[in-house]
């Protein structure tokens, strides 16, 4: 356990990457949207932006980078691959909790201030992050962890099989998606899929995302097993 904490602390030595950058980029995205909201005519339902996505995307990048230059030094210091992965996972979980809480608080402020006085819905996303605060927190947490672990997996695939492996990895995901589309089309089941999503509550969707996040974790852990540095 102690070693896991040390691995997590090790990542945080690069505070700029893990702490300053995600929030800096999110703040920039928010400012751009706020300026637009302040100057453009207000639509009927207020402004909805996709700016919140920037923090998730940046966590994906952080995850991928954590497996590039940091891994070899970690292994020099006698950390096993598994421990390195689990320590990184611990950091991702803690960051998911804390970052999710901050996002939830910002959403509460946004709601209380009628969208920062601009009718700007930056932290509020229809359907998925629109419920009570604990639901927003839970969904944010799951999504943050999902993106970070997805990034970690990308980083590991690149480390283990380099560029060709990375391209294959992306292509394989596309093939899986394509097969699903073909299978649904052939069985004329699109209406069933539509029903599934309309019947799905935000909480249930969070559950689905959590399962995907767990799959990302399992994928990364099995990929790191024979990575060489």
């Amino acid at each position: 356990m102690n070693t896991l904490v040390n691995v997590a602390r090790y990542h945080l030595v690069e505070r700029i990457a893990w702490l300053a950058m995600p929030w800096g980029i999110l703040a920039f995205s928010f400012l751009v949207n706020a300026v637009i909201a302040a100057t453009a005519p207000v639509p009927a339902h207020g402004f909805y932006t996709g700016g919140l996505a920037s923090i998730y995307v940046f966590l994906l990048i952080c995850g991928a980078l954590s497996m590039s230059r940091s891994l070899p030094f970690g292994m020099m210091l006698g950390v096993s691959r598994r421990t390195y992965y689990l320590g990184t996972g611990l950091l991702v979980l803690v960051m998911g909790v804390v970052f999710g809480l901050v996002l939830t608080l910002l959403q509460l402020v946004e709601r209380a201030s009628n969208g920062w006085g601009l009718r700007l819905h930056f932290f509020q996303v229809p359907w998925i992050m629109d419920g009570p605060w604990y639901q927003t927190w839970l969904t944010s947490f799951v999504l943050l962890v999902l993106f970070a672990l997805y990034g970690v997996w990308y980083g590991l695939v690149f480390r283990r099989w380099s560029l060709l492996g990375l391209v294959t990895f992306i292509a394989a995901q596309m093939v899986v998606a394509l097969l699903a589309v073909v299978a649904i089309s052939l069985s004329h089941d699109w209406s069933a899929v539509g029903h599934f999503f309309t019947a799905l509550t935000a909480v249930a969707l969070t559950g689905v995302l959590a399962v995907i996040a767990a799959a990302m974790g399992a994928g990364g852990l099995s990929t790191i097993r024979r990575v060489t540095v």
Partner: peptide
């Protein structure tokens, strides 16, 4: 290999060691 109890008792200094950007 992957044995923390053994690995933590050694240190490996090598020529081409890669360090994080710190």
């Amino acid at each position: 290999a992957e044995n923390d109890a053994v690995l933590r008792r050694m240190v490996f200094v090598r020529e081409e060691q890669v360090y994080p950007d710190f």
